[in-house]
């Protein structure tokens, strides 16, 4: 696969989350779809503004949890009834009250791991190299106190000059080009 070259997008830097959200809404309203906001803390309004509503992390977690539950309960039942039946103080081989505890723990373990790693996977992380880091001002502020809106060049509506003037109309601190 050839490495993409050229312009990744245009990145506007904002001072406050309110400005960012407004700019993002404007961009969405203007028909831009391939874009992203970068903020130093979660700004849900910005996500909604760019049309991102639901995430699948809950679903992944639920599936992971159910798998963990089934795996451990199945394992316990298999071991205690079939593979290694031992008479312990006259209790039945299939001692479901006792099996509940490890099964419960594994439900949490699997769903927890699914929630964490599912989130990373859905985010496409790890991604140590990303074009946005090429923006000269990005790493100064994106994880501290600045708010960024990046309109990506793959968007059909993207046109370098027009998009730049659109972004500059949103009162950013700066608009910079981001290379791949």
């Amino acid at each position: 696969m050839p490495l993409p070259e050229g312009l990744y997008g245009l990145m506007a830097e904002f001072e406050s989350p309110t400005q960012l959200v407004r700019a993002a809404k404007a961009a969405h309203g203007a028909g831009y779809r391939r874009m992203d906001c970068y903020t130093p803390y979660p700004v849900e309004e910005a996500a909604e503004a760019i049309g991102f509503h639901r995430d699948e992390v809950s679903l992944v977690t639920l599936i992971g949890g159910l798998l963990g539950l089934a795996a451990m309960f199945g394992l316990e039942a298999w071991i205690s009834v079939w593979a290694f039946p031992l008479n312990i103080a006259g209790r039945p081989y299939y001692s479901w009250p006792a099996f509940v505890v490890p099964a419960y723990e594994w439900t949490i373990l699997w769903s927890g791991l699914s929630a964490a790693f599912g989130m990373l996977a859905l985010c496409g992380l790890p991604k140590l190299y990303h074009p946005v880091f090429n923006a000269p001002n990005f790493r100064n502020g994106a994880t501290t106190d600045k708010f960024f809106l990046c309109l990506e060049s793959t968007d059909p509506k993207f046109e370098a000059g027009e998009t730049r003037s659109f972004l500059e109309g949103q009162a950013p601190i700066s608009v910079v080009e981001v290379e791949y």
């Binding site: 103080a89 009250p97 006792a98 509940v100």
Partner: peptide
Amino acid sequence: AFGAFLIIWSGN
């Protein structure tokens, strides 16, 4: 409820 049941079930 389950904790109490489990303890008493195990103690038997």
